[in-house]
Deep mutational scan, measured.
Amino acid sequence: RGFLEKAAVKKMAKAIMADPNKADEVYKKWADKGYTLTQMSNFLKSKTAGKYDRVYNGYVIHLD
């Protein structure tokens, strides 16, 4: 289950990176699912340092 969630989160993160207008909708879905910042950090780990920082930081702001 965790692997599928991670894959889904990364897919949506890539969608945000391609079209930032989708961010609020995606952040709301993640918040509704109760994803914590720790979970998001783990889901968005990448071999490329900083690749998903913008998405993660946007989610931090959304939760605030």
Rank of each mutant, 00 (worst) to 15 (best):
R1C: 15
E5V: 10
L44I: 03
I16W: 00
A23R: 06
W30F: 03
K6S: 11
G58H: 03
Y35A: 02
A23Q: 05
K29C: 15
G2V: 13
Y52W: 09
I16P: 01
T48N: 09
G34E: 03
G50V: 03
H62A: 07
Q39N: 05
D53H: 04
A31E: 08
K22I: 14
P20N: 06
T36P: 01
I61V: 13
A13Y: 02
E25L: 09
K47C: 12
G34M: 05
M40F: 01
T36N: 09
E5F: 05
Y52V: 02
A18L: 12
A23E: 05
Y27R: 00
T38W: 10
K22H: 06
P20F: 07
Y27N: 01
A13I: 03
Y35I: 07
L37C: 07
N57F: 14
Y27L: 00
L4Y: 12
K33S: 14
V60N: 03
A31L: 05
K6F: 08
K10V: 14
L44K: 00
L44T: 00
A31S: 10
P20D: 05
V26H: 03
Y27D: 00
A7T: 09
Y56S: 02
D19C: 14
T38S: 11
K29Q: 14
V26Y: 08
N21Y: 09
D19I: 03
V26N: 04
Y35V: 04
L63E: 02
Y27I: 02
A8H: 12
V55G: 00
A49Y: 08
M17W: 04
A7C: 15
I61Y: 08
G34A: 05
Y56K: 04
Y59F: 05
A13D: 01
G2A: 14
V26T: 08
N42G: 11
D32M: 10
A15N: 06
D53I: 05
A15L: 12
Q39T: 06
Y27C: 03
Q39D: 13
T38H: 12
K29E: 14
T48L: 08
K14H: 09
M17G: 02
D32Y: 07
L4F: 12
D32N: 09
F43Y: 07
K22V: 13
D32I: 08
A15V: 11
M40H: 00
Y56D: 02
K14V: 06
K45Q: 12
A18D: 11
T38D: 11
A18K: 12
Y59D: 02
A7Q: 13
K11M: 11
R54T: 15
N42R: 12
T36G: 05
A23K: 07
T36L: 03
A8K: 15
K6R: 14
M12S: 05
K51G: 05
D32G: 08
K29I: 15
